[in-house]
Amino acid sequence: MISLKKYSHIAQFQSLIALFFLCMALALMTDNFMTTDNFWNVMRQISVNVCISVGMTLVILTAGIDLSVGSILAFCGAVTAGLLKYGIEIPSANLYIGFTVLGVVLAGLLAGGAMGFINGYAITRFKVPAFVATLAMLTMARGFTMLWTEGHPITGLGDEFGFLGTGWFLGMPMPVWISGIVVIAAVILTTKTRFGRYIYAIGGNENAARLSGIPINKIKVWVYVLAGMLAAIGGLLVTARLDSAQPNAGMSYELDAIAAVVIGGTSLAGGRGTILGTVLGAMIIGVLNNGLVLLDVSPFWQQVIKGIVILLAVIIDKSNSKSE
């Protein structure tokens, strides 16, 4: 019988070993992998996935799933860019409302949170399966993004906003700082708060959690709100880094997030997993993506290889579960 804590440690240890061997193999096979520039490049690239994956971990821990994070990312990026660049015009009052960088960041978070709330409300109030509710939001958010941007990228957002995606602070890129803060906050949330314990309880056994008096619906709604807000942070980072909000940003990001969560040892059945495991999962995916590019592997083969890695991770997860 393996305890929950021990299970998490085994899963994290496996991820760490996998990451170590992956890095060693790439260091031997390529000239550029073990360089400082490439290290920060990989860290910057995984920052977005880390933010989304942390949200996805919270959702999966409650035995849910959120397929809409990629589209929410795109929508929030577009809202942010649109408000920063064009503001809001009210011709009847001859009024122009402009937004500062703080303003658009808050607006983006609000938009992500609102979309997450709709997901959570549909799932808890109308008992729509999470897969279906978030699939619907995936389509809706993408549609809203196209409507908002009229299908065109919004570019030229200024240096102040761009600093969030391309700037450096105390020797570290800003996206790494931001995703690091997200990770620390999520670790504290899941391990040191009542809210975190409720999340594990709901995913472990929802009926038992209900009978224990845990406000399941409220917790679930908040989890989806958080997932939406974290997707929004991902959207801010992507938009700031590219100095452009692309209407097709974030396509398939939900799959990378789910992959990071699964590789990191979180059980898709809920109730088991850690944020740090997910961070390791995101690092494995990021290093794998980077390594395949450095090795000049065709993008088509990259998809195949990533799929195999995810499949292996699920098989290992299953074998770990059986030994419980």
Partner: peptide, 15 residues
């Protein structure tokens, strides 16, 4: 404080 530092207003015709 957040709202005060988030928004600014101008006449639309000027903009």
């Amino acid at each position: 404080i957040a709202v005060y530092n988030s928004l600014y207003f101008r006449p639309l015709d000027e903009k």
